[in-house]
């Protein structure tokens, strides 16, 4: 929807409160004008990630200077295994970008993907991924977000079942007035599919985290086993987390579940850590890092996992002094 607005310059095409799926990510309200499309990009390099990672395809996406639309495709041939790191890099200023990814996985293919998205605090940024899978595919994704004025990472997976597996994880650590939205839709189309999702978020300052996760099980997709968990921590009274985990089930032989918790940092754990000698700020950082770290730990590729942990630790650092 954002791409359409950028291409046409028509502000009324921007998604906003009127749209059920965008009630907490109001782009219409955030943009009084639609910036013109401009193919120029800002310089890369804002990222401190070492680029040479063993066996990993690293793709870097530079920020536009005004409006930018990009469409990226990836095909993993039958039986192949790929590991991809997508770095969606920050630029400066009030740029507006729409990134669309289309992935196609052949029979028995597997893809592990880490998305790290950084944006300027004034930017509006949407990255949408559509994944088409065949039988016995394995798709695993982890999205780490640091927010923007409005930022959304949206992933749609069509799951054919057939002993295929999907993992869709995410984490967000937001401070200042940043906003980040992680939205997932997993559609189980055939028998015996499995999907797992774990999304963890921490918000401080006046930040706002949004999580929407929908599991659809279509008629005939018996034997589906789908689980989703979202856990949020709110560190400040001005911060906010909005979430909507959804189940839409049209088959009866299924096991589907979601869990959603939102709360403060566990005081008992904080006390325990402090009683062993950690200063409060450090104890907090430890607990926050451990909390979101569990998301990173699920990444199979060791190099990718390290990058995720480094990214999260750096962000947890940024909370210092802003926790309350």
């Amino acid at each position: 929807m954002l791409a359409e607005a950028l291409r046409s310059g028509d502000r009324t095409k921007l998604p906003g409160r009127r749209h059920e799926g965008w009630r907490w990510t109001d782009l219409f309200g955030a943009l009084t004008t639609v910036p013109p499309l401009n193919p120029e990009r800002q310089a890369l390099g804002s990222w401190s990630v070492p680029i040479a990672l063993d066996g990993v395809v690293v793709r870097r996406f530079a920020a536009p200077i005004q409006g930018g639309v990009e469409h990226v495709t990836l095909e993993v041939p039958a039986g192949d295994h790929r590991v991809v790191l997508d770095l969606i890099e920050a630029g400066q200023g009030r740029y507006v970008r729409d990134l669309a990814f289309d992935f196609t996985l052949g029979v028995g293919a597997s893809l592990e993907r880490l998305v790290m998205i950084a944006d300027d605090a004034d930017a509006v940024s949407v990255a949408t991924t559509h994944v088409q899978m065949q039988a016995r595919c394995d798709f695993a994704q982890t999205v780490l977000a640091s927010g923007a004025r409005r930022q959304r990472v949206e992933t749609h997976v069509d799951h054919p079942g057939g002993a295929g597996r999907v993992r869709l994880d995410g984490a967000y650590l937001l401070a200042g007035a940043r906003h980040a939205d992680q939205t997932t839709v997993v559609r189980h189309l055939g028998r015996d599919g499995e999907s797992r999702q774990l999304v963890r978020g921490v918000v401080a300052g006046a930040a706002r985290g949004v999580f929407q996760g929908r599991i659809e099980v279509l008629q005939g997709a018996d034997g589906t086993d789908a689980r989703l968990a979202h856990n949020g921590l709110i560190l400040s009274d001005r911060a906010e987390i909005d979430s909507k985990p959804e189940l839409e089930i049209y088959a009866d032989d299924v096991a589907c579940a979601h869990g959603n918790t939102i709360g403060a940092l566990d005081e008992d754990a904080l006390f325990y850590a402090m009683s062993r000698g950690l200063p409060e700020a450090e104890a907090r950082r430890l607990l926050i890092t451990a909390f979101v770290g569990e998301v990173a730990e699920r990444i199979r590729h060791p190099g990718l996992r390290d990058q995720a942990l480094i990214f999260l630790a750096a962000q947890a650092e940024a909370f210092d002094g802003e926790g309350r």
Partner: peptide, 19 residues
């Protein structure tokens, strides 16, 4: 289920299953 939390001392827990 829609869940909106706007302060740092609230505690919300939601569980759902379909079987």
């Amino acid at each position: 289920p829609y869940v909106e939390a706007r302060n740092g001392s609230a505690k919300l827990e939601h569980e759902a299953t379909t079987t």
